[in-house]
Write a protein that binds this DNA or RNA. Structure first.
Length: 106
DNA sequence: AGTAAGGCGGGCA
DNA sequence: GTGCCCGCCTTAC
């Protein structure tokens, strides 16, 4: 169903999950999508985060690509990178180091 | 209404 | 490792 209501609902769920990611941990668009009992909505998740940037309340920067690359950010990758490194997550060439160490399964 | 693009993912060469 | 292609859902024009 892709009516307006279900989309809003989907976004709310995304935000609620993202808010739970602890500082210094990360998750992926894919993991989020799976948590919402869906299969292939990774892209929609990214779109949701992009559209509804309550940047203060929702730590969107802790969501990265499933292959460990940093992925996008409303304010640019550089900003995302900076925020994450401030939290102790280390990246090298836009790719996370020790992904498994930081991965947060909701 | 149609088409392209986007904070993606997987598969395969 | 790269690149390409296809599929996915939503948004933008």
């Amino acid at each position: 169903m892709s009516n307006k209501f279900s989309i809003i609902n989907f976004q709310k769920q995304v935000f609620n999950l993202v808010k739970k990611i602890p500082k210094g941990r990360v998750t992926t668009y894919k993991i989020l999508a799976e948590k919402l009992d869906n299969k292939n909505l990774a892209r929609a998740v990214g779109n949701a985060l992009n559209k509804n940037p309550q940047l203060i309340k929702v730590p969107c920067h802790r969501v990265i690509n499933s292959d460990g690359y940093i992925g996008g950010y409303k304010l640019g990758q550089a900003k995302k990178l900076k925020l994450l490194s401030k939290e102790g997550v280390i990246f090298k060439n836009n790719k996370i180091i020790n992904f498994d160490l930081y991965k947060f399964y909701l």
